[in-house]
Amino acid sequence: MGKSNSKLKPEVVEELTRKTYFTEKEVQQWYKGFIKDCPSGQLDAAGFQKIYKQFFPFGDPTKFATFVFNVFDENKDGRIEFSEFIQALSVTSRGTLDEKLRWAFKLYDLDNDGYITRNEMLDIVDAIYQMVGNTVELPEEENTPEKRVDRIFAMMDKNADGKLTLQEFQEGSKADPSIVQALSLYDGLV
Protein backbone atom coordinates (compact mmCIF):
# COMPACT_ATOMS: atom_id res chain seq x y z
CA MET A 1 0.00 0.00 0.00
CA GLY A 2 2.76 2.48 -0.83
CA LYS A 3 4.44 2.40 2.58
CA SER A 4 5.62 5.98 3.02
CA ASN A 5 3.77 7.68 0.17
CA SER A 6 1.87 10.73 1.29
CA LYS A 7 -0.97 9.85 -1.08
CA LEU A 8 -2.88 6.65 -1.64
CA LYS A 9 -3.30 5.23 -5.13
CA PRO A 10 -6.69 6.19 -6.62
CA GLU A 11 -7.82 2.56 -6.80
CA VAL A 12 -7.02 2.07 -3.10
CA VAL A 13 -8.94 5.24 -2.18
CA GLU A 14 -11.86 4.00 -4.28
CA GLU A 15 -11.82 0.59 -2.58
CA LEU A 16 -11.66 2.09 0.92
CA THR A 17 -14.47 4.51 0.08
CA ARG A 18 -16.59 1.50 -0.94
CA LYS A 19 -15.72 -0.43 2.23
CA THR A 20 -16.19 2.47 4.68
CA TYR A 21 -18.51 5.34 5.51
CA PHE A 22 -15.82 7.88 4.56
CA THR A 23 -15.61 10.03 1.43
CA GLU A 24 -12.53 9.96 -0.82
CA LYS A 25 -11.38 13.25 0.68
CA GLU A 26 -11.79 11.94 4.24
CA VAL A 27 -9.88 8.74 3.41
CA GLN A 28 -7.02 10.87 2.01
CA GLN A 29 -7.03 13.11 5.11
CA TRP A 30 -6.98 10.14 7.48
CA TYR A 31 -4.17 8.57 5.45
CA LYS A 32 -2.12 11.75 5.62
CA GLY A 33 -2.45 11.80 9.42
CA PHE A 34 -1.78 8.07 9.69
CA ILE A 35 1.44 8.34 7.66
CA LYS A 36 2.52 11.39 9.65
CA ASP A 37 2.16 9.41 12.89
CA CYS A 38 3.27 6.08 11.39
CA PRO A 39 5.83 6.79 8.64
CA SER A 40 6.32 3.06 8.07
CA GLY A 41 2.67 2.77 7.11
CA GLN A 42 2.01 0.45 10.05
CA LEU A 43 1.14 0.83 13.71
CA ASP A 44 2.39 -1.73 16.22
CA ALA A 45 0.85 -2.57 19.60
CA ALA A 46 3.26 -0.32 21.53
CA GLY A 47 2.41 2.65 19.32
CA PHE A 48 -1.29 1.93 19.69
CA GLN A 49 -0.95 1.80 23.49
CA LYS A 50 0.90 5.11 23.43
CA ILE A 51 -2.05 6.72 21.65
CA TYR A 52 -4.46 5.36 24.26
CA LYS A 53 -2.25 6.71 27.07
CA GLN A 54 -2.70 10.22 25.66
CA PHE A 55 -6.48 9.85 25.90
CA PHE A 56 -6.49 8.20 29.33
CA PRO A 57 -3.64 9.82 31.29
CA PHE A 58 -5.15 9.12 34.73
CA GLY A 59 -5.51 5.37 34.35
CA ASP A 60 -3.64 2.51 32.72
CA PRO A 61 -5.06 1.80 29.25
CA THR A 62 -2.38 -0.74 28.29
CA LYS A 63 -4.51 -3.87 28.68
CA PHE A 64 -7.60 -2.38 27.00
CA ALA A 65 -5.53 -0.91 24.15
CA THR A 66 -4.08 -4.37 23.53
CA PHE A 67 -7.57 -5.87 23.24
CA VAL A 68 -8.70 -3.11 20.84
CA PHE A 69 -5.47 -3.47 18.83
CA ASN A 70 -6.23 -7.15 18.32
CA VAL A 71 -9.64 -6.33 16.81
CA PHE A 72 -8.19 -3.61 14.54
CA ASP A 73 -5.47 -6.04 13.38
CA GLU A 74 -7.77 -8.05 11.11
CA ASN A 75 -5.03 -10.12 9.46
CA LYS A 76 -3.36 -10.86 12.82
CA ASP A 77 0.15 -9.91 11.69
CA GLY A 78 0.89 -7.82 14.80
CA ARG A 79 0.58 -4.52 12.92
CA ILE A 80 -2.28 -2.27 11.88
CA GLU A 81 -2.07 -1.15 8.26
CA PHE A 82 -4.01 1.90 7.13
CA SER A 83 -6.78 -0.15 5.49
CA GLU A 84 -7.39 -2.03 8.78
CA PHE A 85 -7.31 1.24 10.71
CA ILE A 86 -9.77 3.12 8.48
CA GLN A 87 -12.22 0.21 8.26
CA ALA A 88 -12.33 -0.24 12.05
CA LEU A 89 -12.61 3.51 12.53
CA SER A 90 -15.48 3.61 10.05
CA VAL A 91 -17.46 0.99 11.99
CA THR A 92 -16.75 2.45 15.43
CA SER A 93 -17.44 6.04 14.43
CA ARG A 94 -20.11 5.86 11.73
CA GLY A 95 -21.38 2.31 11.64
CA THR A 96 -24.93 1.26 12.39
CA LEU A 97 -25.77 0.12 15.91
CA ASP A 98 -25.68 -3.52 14.75
CA GLU A 99 -22.26 -3.03 13.12
CA LYS A 100 -20.93 -1.46 16.31
CA LEU A 101 -22.36 -4.29 18.39
CA ARG A 102 -20.76 -6.93 16.12
CA TRP A 103 -17.44 -5.05 16.46
CA ALA A 104 -17.83 -4.85 20.26
CA PHE A 105 -18.68 -8.58 20.33
CA LYS A 106 -15.38 -9.31 18.55
CA LEU A 107 -13.61 -7.21 21.18
CA TYR A 108 -15.12 -9.20 24.06
CA ASP A 109 -14.80 -12.62 22.38
CA LEU A 110 -11.10 -12.88 23.16
CA ASP A 111 -10.60 -16.43 21.87
CA ASN A 112 -12.78 -15.92 18.76
CA ASP A 113 -14.96 -18.96 19.49
CA GLY A 114 -18.24 -17.14 18.83
CA TYR A 115 -19.15 -16.69 22.51
CA ILE A 116 -18.33 -14.23 25.27
CA THR A 117 -17.61 -16.10 28.48
CA ARG A 118 -17.84 -14.56 31.92
CA ASN A 119 -14.01 -14.59 32.16
CA GLU A 120 -13.60 -12.88 28.78
CA MET A 121 -16.02 -10.16 29.79
CA LEU A 122 -14.28 -9.84 33.16
CA ASP A 123 -10.93 -9.36 31.38
CA ILE A 124 -12.35 -6.54 29.24
CA VAL A 125 -14.34 -4.84 32.01
CA ASP A 126 -11.31 -5.02 34.32
CA ALA A 127 -9.20 -3.43 31.57
CA ILE A 128 -11.78 -0.65 31.18
CA TYR A 129 -11.80 0.00 34.94
CA GLN A 130 -7.97 0.17 34.89
CA MET A 131 -8.09 2.54 31.93
CA VAL A 132 -10.49 5.07 33.44
CA GLY A 133 -8.81 4.87 36.85
CA ASN A 134 -10.49 6.95 39.51
CA THR A 135 -11.88 9.47 37.02
CA VAL A 136 -15.33 7.86 36.95
CA GLU A 137 -17.52 7.53 40.04
CA LEU A 138 -19.39 4.25 39.78
CA PRO A 139 -22.59 3.27 41.59
CA GLU A 140 -22.21 0.76 44.44
CA GLU A 141 -23.70 -2.07 42.36
CA GLU A 142 -21.02 -1.62 39.67
CA ASN A 143 -17.98 -0.41 41.61
CA THR A 144 -15.94 -3.53 40.80
CA PRO A 145 -15.47 -5.33 37.49
CA GLU A 146 -16.98 -8.48 39.02
CA LYS A 147 -20.18 -6.67 40.03
CA ARG A 148 -20.49 -5.10 36.59
CA VAL A 149 -20.02 -8.47 34.84
CA ASP A 150 -22.54 -10.13 37.20
CA ARG A 151 -25.09 -7.43 36.32
CA ILE A 152 -24.44 -7.76 32.58
CA PHE A 153 -24.69 -11.56 32.61
CA ALA A 154 -27.87 -11.46 34.73
CA MET A 155 -29.42 -9.22 32.09
CA MET A 156 -28.02 -10.75 28.88
CA ASP A 157 -27.44 -14.47 29.46
CA LYS A 158 -31.05 -15.49 28.80
CA ASN A 159 -30.42 -19.26 28.79
CA ALA A 160 -28.05 -19.04 31.81
CA ASP A 161 -25.33 -21.13 30.14
CA GLY A 162 -22.52 -18.85 31.31
CA LYS A 163 -21.73 -17.48 27.88
CA LEU A 164 -23.21 -14.91 25.52
CA THR A 165 -23.98 -15.48 21.87
CA LEU A 166 -23.86 -12.58 19.43
CA GLN A 167 -27.67 -12.49 19.49
CA GLU A 168 -27.83 -12.37 23.32
CA PHE A 169 -25.17 -9.66 23.33
CA GLN A 170 -26.97 -7.58 20.69
CA GLU A 171 -30.40 -7.90 22.30
CA GLY A 172 -29.06 -7.25 25.80
CA SER A 173 -27.04 -4.26 24.66
CA LYS A 174 -30.00 -2.73 22.85
CA ALA A 175 -32.11 -3.14 26.00
CA ASP A 176 -29.56 -1.20 28.08
CA PRO A 177 -29.52 2.51 27.17
CA SER A 178 -26.12 3.01 28.84
CA ILE A 179 -24.53 0.48 26.47
CA VAL A 180 -26.16 2.04 23.40
CA GLN A 181 -24.97 5.46 24.60
CA ALA A 182 -21.40 4.17 25.12
CA LEU A 183 -21.38 2.78 21.57
CA SER A 184 -22.55 6.14 20.21
CA LEU A 185 -19.74 8.16 21.78
CA TYR A 186 -17.81 8.41 18.52
CA ASP A 187 -20.80 9.46 16.40
CA GLY A 188 -20.14 12.71 14.63
CA LEU A 189 -16.59 13.06 15.95
CA VAL A 190 -15.02 12.21 12.60
Rank of each mutant, 00 (worst) to 15 (best):
G2P: 02
S4V: 14
S4Q: 01
K7D: 06
K7S: 02
P10M: 12
E11H: 11
V13G: 15
E14S: 08
E14H: 11
Y21C: 13
Y21S: 15
F22Y: 12
T23L: 06
T23Q: 12
V27P: 05
V27I: 12
V27T: 03
Y31N: 12
Y31S: 15
K32F: 14
K32T: 10
F34T: 13
F34C: 00
D37A: 04
D37W: 06
G41D: 03
Y52I: 08
K53F: 10
F55H: 13
F56V: 04
F56M: 08
G59P: 00
D60N: 08
T62W: 04
T62M: 03
K63A: 02
F64L: 08
F64D: 03
A65K: 09
F67A: 13
V71N: 08
V71G: 04
D73S: 00
N75F: 10
D77R: 14
G78E: 08
G78Q: 12
I80M: 08
I80T: 11
E81S: 15
F82H: 15
F82C: 15
E84W: 15
F85E: 13
Q87D: 11
L89G: 03
V91G: 12
T92M: 07
R94P: 00
L97K: 01
E99Y: 11
L101E: 01
R102L: 14
W103G: 05
A104Y: 00
K106Y: 07
L107S: 02
Y108L: 02
L110H: 13
D111R: 13
D111T: 08
N112V: 01
D113C: 13
T117M: 08
T117K: 03
M121G: 02
M121A: 01
L122R: 08
L122Q: 12
D123S: 05
I124G: 01
I124C: 04
V125S: 01
V125D: 07
D126H: 07
A127C: 02
A127N: 01
I128T: 07
M131E: 14
M131A: 05
V132K: 05
V132R: 00
V132N: 05
V132Q: 00
V132Y: 00
G133S: 07
T135L: 15
T135F: 14
V136F: 06
L138Q: 01
P139T: 08
E141A: 04
E142R: 01
E142A: 06
E146V: 12
I152N: 06
M155Q: 00
M156W: 14
K158V: 10
K158D: 01
K158N: 06
G162M: 03
L166I: 09
Q170C: 00
Q170V: 05
Q170T: 04
G172W: 12
K174N: 13
D176M: 00
V180E: 15
V180M: 12
Q181G: 12
A182S: 07
L183V: 06
L183M: 11
S184P: 08
L185F: 11
D187V: 10
G188Y: 13
V190M: 11
